[in-house]
């Protein structure tokens, strides 16, 4: 399954996910994206920057100090929910998602973790 197909499968399983994008955080680039929202490259760039910022200090350092290195973050705003997951084997690989507040978050996080692991492993 290609990366785009993997991302499309997430959207199909969770229609409340507006955008699911695969990013290389080290190069600050969204490499592939799928979703029902019509997003521009600027939107995707911003999403990638927000993912990087969410895995940055000072909260990153606090988390490392308290529980170990974080691989997931979510940002709840007035209009949407953004979920960012980093690969545990290659932390530059990440999935960046924009969702409705009504999404089944527990199931969704498990699904995108499985998807990210699959993409990183190249399977």
């Amino acid at each position: 399954m290609s990366v785009a197909e993997s991302l499309g499968a997430v959207i199909k399983a969770y229609p409340q996910a507006r955008v699911v994008a695969f990013a290389d955080l080290s190069s600050r680039m969204i490499l592939a994206s799928q979703g029902r929202d019509d997003v521009t490259q600027e939107h995707l760039d911003r999403l990638c920057q927000q993912a990087r910022a969410s895995f940055d200090d000072p909260l990153f350092a606090l988390s490392v100090e308290a529980f170990g290195e974080p691989h997931g973050s979510m940002v709840v705003g007035p209009d949407n929910l953004r979920v960012f997951l980093r690969s545990e084997t290659d932390p530059a690989d990440a999935l960046c998602c924009i969702c409705d507040h009504s999404i089944d978050l527990t199931g969704f996080v498990a699904k995108i973790r499985e998807t990210l692991d699959s993409i990183t492993a190249g399977t």
Partner: peptide
Amino acid sequence: MVLGAALIEGHCI
């Protein structure tokens, strides 16, 4: 904002 190892288990900030 929530930051953690797995988000759905363990501890989070």
